[in-house]
């Protein structure tokens, strides 16, 4: 049973791993670009979660034809297409802000920025 869970649910382990790595990088990294990368990894974990959710053994694409069932629900894929678009826009805005911070302060290090503020 345990072995069965281990071998059949590896996608979910990947999800947990991606979420963990992403969140850790966002919190722990001092570099602003790496924080943005961590944010992307975190979101990728969620994308994988939705896609894994939609998997159905022996399922067919949802194009209704005689005797072709069972069908896979297309909904999670569509949701993730939207979420990917959202993720790309967020990354674009984040990088634009990073460029502006760097051109002004010449650093991307969070601690150095803090020190600059206190001077």
């Amino acid at each position: 049973m345990t072995l069965d869970l281990l071998t059949t649910h590896y996608n979910y382990y990947a999800v947990v791993l991606l979420l963990g790595i992403g969140l850790y990088t966002v919190i722990e990294s001092r570099n602003l670009v790496k924080k943005v990368i961590g944010m992307n990894v975190f979101q990728t974990g969620i994308f994988l979660f939705f896609i894994t959710l939609a998997y159905r053994a022996g399922g067919n694409p949802p194009v209704v034809t005689e005797g072709a069932g069972p069908y896979v629900s297309p909904l999670p894929h569509v949701l993730i297409l939207t979420a990917i678009v959202v993720g790309v826009s967020l990354t674009a805005v984040a990088l634009a802000l990073v460029v502006r911070v760097y051109s002004e302060y010449g650093t991307l290090d969070e601690h150095t920025l803090e020190e600059l503020y206190h001077d």
Partner: peptide, 24 residues
């Protein structure tokens, strides 16, 4: 100032994590 860019970036990163948790 560039201070507002730093504030916006911080807002963006934390806000995105929040929205992603909601999505999860």
């Amino acid at each position: 100032g560039a201070r507002s860019a730093v504030a916006a970036l911080k807002y963006l990163i934390i806000g995105t994590i929040g929205a992603s948790l909601y999505l999860l």
